[in-house]
Nucleic acid binder design. Structure first.
Length: 221
DNA sequence: CCATTAAACAGCT
DNA sequence: AGCTGTTTAATGG
């Protein structure tokens, strides 16, 4: 697989949980390098290790019934992944792919469990992280299958704003990919939102002027 | 009617 | 020069 097979690359990474305890656990582990474009775990494979990302970016995506690739999550530095499949023994919904050169480390399920027994902070962190990720993944997939496109874009904007504040440095291309649509559609929606002074688009970013009206925005008022 | 794709174009860095 | 935002036209659900 060449680099050209992965053209979109620069997704914004959502939701970073505090996992300082785990960061220490992994600090001195053997570093594993996953080159850009490599598949870390394929859809449907049973999971045996918990992985932690030092640097790089990993995309979690699944192939749906029609053969389209659906992006579930984008994970950056200081992220754990494969938590749920490790606990349940159920293979992950999708595949994990390194979209940049990624440095990671892994520990076995046995070690994970004994660490959690001896240090409740680790249990707490993992529980929090798992909850955030599950919610995020479910809402993403649900959005993809049921929400209308304007709603998906606005929900994505609000999620970003919750995380990063009212000045977002994300271009329309990346926002469109996060919301599973195109930059043409984003541009059209922005024209309406702009005319009502709900948002102010800037080059390569968006300023949200009225969060509550954005959240409740409906077409044709 | 609505969203996507493709293409062309202008504006920005 | 490459990236970004906007518009238009064609296509298909």
């Amino acid at each position: 697989m060449s680099d050209n097979d992965l053209p979109w690359l620069k997704h914004t990474k959502l939701f970073r949980s505090p996992i300082d305890g785990w960061k220490k656990v992994f600090a001195h582990r053997e570093r594993l390098l996953y080159p850009k474009g490599s598949i870390i775990i394929k859809q449907g494979i049973t999971i045996e290790k918990l992985l932690y990302i030092f640097t790089g970016t990993v995309e979690y995506s699944k192939v749906d019934e029609e053969g389209n690739e659906v992006l579930i999550d984008v994970l950056g530095a200081n992220n754990l992944f494969m938590i749920a499949p490790l606990f349940t023994g159920i293979p992950p919904l999708g595949s994990f792919t390194a979209v940049e050169d990624t440095v990671a480390a892994a520990i076995s399920i046995q070690e994970m469990k004994s660490l959690m027994k001896s240090d409740f902070t680790l249990t707490e962190e993992l529980l929090y992280d798992l909850s955030m990720k599950s919610n995020n993944h479910i809402s993403r997939l649900q959005k993809h299958y049921t929400y209308k496109v304007d709603h998906r874009i606005i929900e994505t904007l609000c999620a970003l704003a919750d995380q990063q504040g009212m000045q977002l440095f994300i271009n329309q291309q990346d926002l469109a990919e996060l919301a599973d649509t195109t930059r043409v559609t984003v541009s059209k929606l922005f024209r309406d939102l702009k005319s009502e002074n709900i948002i102010r688009p800037i080059y390569g970013g968006i300023i949200i002027q009225d969060y509550s009206r954005l959240k409740n925005w409906q077409k044709h008022i």
